[in-house]
Design a binder for these strands. Sequence first.
DNA 1: CGCAATCTCTACTAACTCGATAGGGTATTG
DNA 2: CAATACCCTATCGAGTTAGTAGAGATTGCG
Lengths: 154, 154
Amino acid sequence: MISQRARYAFKALIVLARAGSAGMQIRDIAEKEQIPRKFLEQILLSLKAGGLITSRRGREGGYALLKNAESISLGSVLRMIDGPIAPLPCLSRTAYRKCDDCPSEELCAVRAGFAEAYEASLRVLEATTIAQAMKATEGKPQARRVPKTSASLA
Amino acid sequence: MISQRARYAFKALIVLARAGSAGMQIRDIAEKEQIPRKFLEQILLSLKAGGLITSRRGREGGYALLKNAESISLGSVLRMIDGPIAPLPCLSRTAYRKCDDCPSEELCAVRAGFAEAYEASLRVLEATTIAQAMKATEGKPQARRVPKTSASLA
DNA sequence: CGCAATCTCTACTAACTCGATAGGGTATTG
DNA sequence: CAATACCCTATCGAGTTAGTAGAGATTGCG
């Protein structure tokens, strides 16, 4: 199970993707997606630190997507928010760590068993983008708002 | 990341698989795999409740595999020990639950995005067995002990 | 039988994580 | 210069995780 944080992160990213370069403010995202405002703040900060979104302070501030939706994979967001995706530390590429008790990785049957499963799921997670996720639910999209003509954030 | 419990469970199952119908006692499994004995007890109990292993009490007691290693999938063990595998409650087949805040599952882009990734990883997890995991590390197997001629547990 | 060995069950605990809240700090704009 | 919106850090309650503890049930052996 992915964390609530991660779920909020995806929702926020999708809303921001729909908002386009005009961007949105925390309050509006929070309201639209029913996310506690201050909690969302932290999440957006993480996404910003990860280089996915940008922000502007002050009265007309807000957030906007920095990368386009087609190039944001589920895996990258998940890793950014929830940490390593690998089932075992010794299988992670981005956060490798030897298992405390494991004397030999080559002989570890647990590791061998999970290696393949991990590879398969990672491949899909890296290949699937939030743009695809959005497209898959476009039959009956939720109320779409016309982008206001205001200074672009991107 | 899978839990420590789950890792111990896999190690215990693999050791039991090697021990064959003769079975093994908690103490020996714990010692061989460097697992806290009382902690391992609880884990073996769960595996027994899940129908994977059997046990006998008393002086010549111990545990033994009930199903053969070829028919124990990584997924089944994982689900038994760590709970649902699905990334979202609304995607789980064995523990379905509506997401609290989600108004419509058909329109949920997060759900749509993860559906495919989940399917792929689940397929592999269900298809991979502990027998395969063992086989993959058979080049240099750890010290194999000749099964003692004692009453079979299976 | 009686004792010892082994599994069974339940309770408990320290440390950590998760979701959420709070509040003051900093930049930007009217 | 004050209102507004993002920035940063601390804190908290609830729940989970890893591990410990101990009393009880069952079996084998002398």
